[in-house]
Design a protein around this nucleic acid. Sequence first.
DNA 1: GTGGTCTAGACCACA
DNA 2: GTGGTCTAGACCACT
Lengths: 125, 125, 125, 125
Amino acid sequence: MLTIDVKSRKPIYEQIIDNIKELIIQGVWSRDTQLPSVRQLAGDLAINPNTIQKAYSELERQGIIYSMKSKGSFVASGVDELRKERKEQLFKEFGRILEEMREIGITSREIEERLQEQWKGVQND
Amino acid sequence: MLTIDVKSRKPIYEQIIDNIKELIIQGVWSRDTQLPSVRQLAGDLAINPNTIQKAYSELERQGIIYSMKSKGSFVASGVDELRKERKEQLFKEFGRILEEMREIGITSREIEERLQEQWKGVQND
Amino acid sequence: MLTIDVKSRKPIYEQIIDNIKELIIQGVWSRDTQLPSVRQLAGDLAINPNTIQKAYSELERQGIIYSMKSKGSFVASGVDELRKERKEQLFKEFGRILEEMREIGITSREIEERLQEQWKGVQND
Amino acid sequence: MLTIDVKSRKPIYEQIIDNIKELIIQGVWSRDTQLPSVRQLAGDLAINPNTIQKAYSELERQGIIYSMKSKGSFVASGVDELRKERKEQLFKEFGRILEEMREIGITSREIEERLQEQWKGVQND
DNA sequence: GTGGTCTAGACCACA
DNA sequence: GTGGTCTAGACCACT
């Protein structure tokens, strides 16, 4: 379920964080689902347990999971909160890209075309 | 002209690289313009000359500037090459964002709205 | 295994690069072999770690090795790619020399003789 | 007659040296021909006179030209000496290349082919 | 421990 | 003066 790329430039603990967020967003893990234990996951991924611990700590700091001593870690956020957050993030980035495109002289026509092209054949609207 | 943020997570030498590329893209510096000398720029930015050197070396490696010992460093690329490269990069990023937006269930309607909003009052199309 | 000459006009970091390429070409180090750490090699060669770092960075840029923070540096290229590249380089240089020889009036007979002489006793053909 | 490339990585003074040697080897300048004055050449090439001076000094050190105070510089070597020297140099380099080719497993057959190809249509043998 | 970045200061060849 | 190389020493994030 969790896949990491040790060769990536992105730190492993960040990959784990993103992976877990993704699983929650996609509804694979819902509220109060128990996460694999640090040791368990470390073993599965052949990763240093400290790295897993760091990822879990960060997730807990962000309020996305909660830990109970000697019980384990559990999903705190529901799909909705995370989705909303992610949506805002995406729109923010989207705006930044558009701004840069405008500065460099890309026309809205070009953007529209790209948009049509990418969305063609998809009917989620 | 060049501004760096020593507190940023992005390495200083990368900031310098991006800054210089930006100046060229915006047409401030054109082909064969002499860049500030390593020591000069280091003094201006209150940065160690080695850091500037590293940035210049990387820019030279990318073929964006050329350096002549005891002469100085000069702009090699024209605006066009850099603009084209940047454009492709932006479109690629644009596509990636769109893909992620689609996955998370953002409708093309929402995107269109955002697009209209951001572009309103601009007439470069 | 790695030897450098601090007195040479060729920069130390280039010597290191060439040395490492040679080790890979000769099959001493194969794909995914871990290179000595920056500090380790610096200690062995009595060279400043920054110099090693510079060599490793350049090798990574050329796609010959890959580095993972807090993991180490590893061989990326297989023997074959490097050999092929080297072969082309040698033939190119060979052609250049032949051209110069022709210009200065050296006859093909002389060259043939030299060739025979150098290859005598060798049976790799 | 003399052409230099300020963008080249080869130092300008070395380019001048090589250029002058070439002129002598090709018989354009023969023994006792007067070279252009330092100032003259500096003006023609738009180069710092110090650079020309350095080239002339080195040529004099190598015994290829001689200078007479307030008279100028003159060619000392004849074609033959220089040609011989160059020939040895070329053969030495040729041998080095062959050695490297052998080490990397290039067969004498491949070399022969390249040789034939490069010499085809030329009848100076 | 690892690689990566940065500083301060030095020396070099070149023009 | 210029760019290029190197050293010594430091700090950082990551594992």
